[in-house]
């Protein structure tokens, strides 16, 4: 049985910490210069948390999230998701984990240009089930996001806000344990940004999704119950709050 399968099987375990990151370090070597993006970062994220990671450019917030989201590997340290150290997973197990348990929303939407809105959403679901089931699920998500009339539109035919909604729907289609969002409103106008943040708040409060979001907009932290601030690769502030 693969570790991914084990992760699935243990979903109902009473583990309050969904992610535990211990003593993470990550250094980038740019020619002769070494940049310490993460310096002994330790953080834990509970099920149902809405964590916002903030900090200046180069503070290490995106690096932290990329590592937590299994898009990159730390140089040292452990990342335990649902009780398993994902840094020790093999490449194919990491792929399975991203597909089944993690949702990722990129700053620039990252939709596949040649796929329609519907097809972009259904693609991850096609990996796990039939084409028909994936399509039905994707159509339901489009309806949920009020984009059912845009199903056949290509990304280039959608506004920034609509594209980001499609990206969120794609991230959600396999019902992930955690949703990661990397500055999801950075390319949106204020109206669209507010709408997207509203979706995140709904997903967290009403649907119980665990969300980890990176932003450097202070006013976007208001929906989070957890605020993590980073500077020079270190966590300099980690506070829980009631929202």
């Amino acid at each position: 049985m693969s570790k991914t399968a084990t992760l699935q099987g243990e979903e109902n375990m009473d583990i309050s910490s969904l992610i535990i990151a211990k003593d993470l370090t990550k250094t980038y070597h740019l020619g002769e210069v070494s940049v310490h993006a993460l310096e002994h970062v330790t953080i834990d994220i509970n099920r149902g948390d809405f964590v916002v990671i903030t900090g200046r450019n180069g503070a290490g917030k995106s690096t932290l999230m990329h590592n937590l989201a299994v898009l990159d590997r730390p140089d040292s340290g452990e990342i335990i998701i649902n009780g398993h150290d994902v840094t020790k997973l093999k490449k194919y197990e990491r792929t399975e984990l991203r597909l089944q348990k993690l949702g990722y929303i990129f700053q620039e939407y990252a939709l596949i240009a040649e796929l329609s809105a519907l097809e972009n959403i259904m693609l991850p679901a096609m990996m796990l089930g039939s084409f028909k089931a994936a399509k039905e699920k994707a159509l339901a998500m489009l309806k949920q996001f009020g984009l059912e009339d845009h199903a056949t539109h290509l990304p280039s035919q959608l506004s920034g806000g609509q594209q980001q909604k499609i990206a969120i729907a794609r991230a959600l289609i396999n019902d992930p344990m955690i949703l990661f969002a990397d500055e999801p409103t950075a390319n949106l106008d204020s109206v669209a940004a507010k709408e997207v943040l509203g979706i995140f708040r709904h997903l967290n409060r009403d649907a119980g999704h665990t969300i980890v979001m990176v932003t450097h907009e202070q006013d976007e932290t208001i929906h989070a119950n957890r605020l993590v601030e980073m500077a020079d690769g270190k966590v300099v502030r980690d506070e829980r709050r009631n929202v």
């Binding site: 898009l71 490449k91 194919y92 792929t95 399975e96 984990l97 991203r98 597909l99 089944q100 990722y104 990129f106 990252a110 939709l111 596949i112 240009a113 693609l123 991850p124 990996m127 794609r170 991230a171 396999n174």
Partner: peptide
Amino acid sequence: KRQIGILRAIGIKP
């Protein structure tokens, strides 16, 4: 390259 990176990020097998 970017498209392939996105496909991998969302869990499409190599």
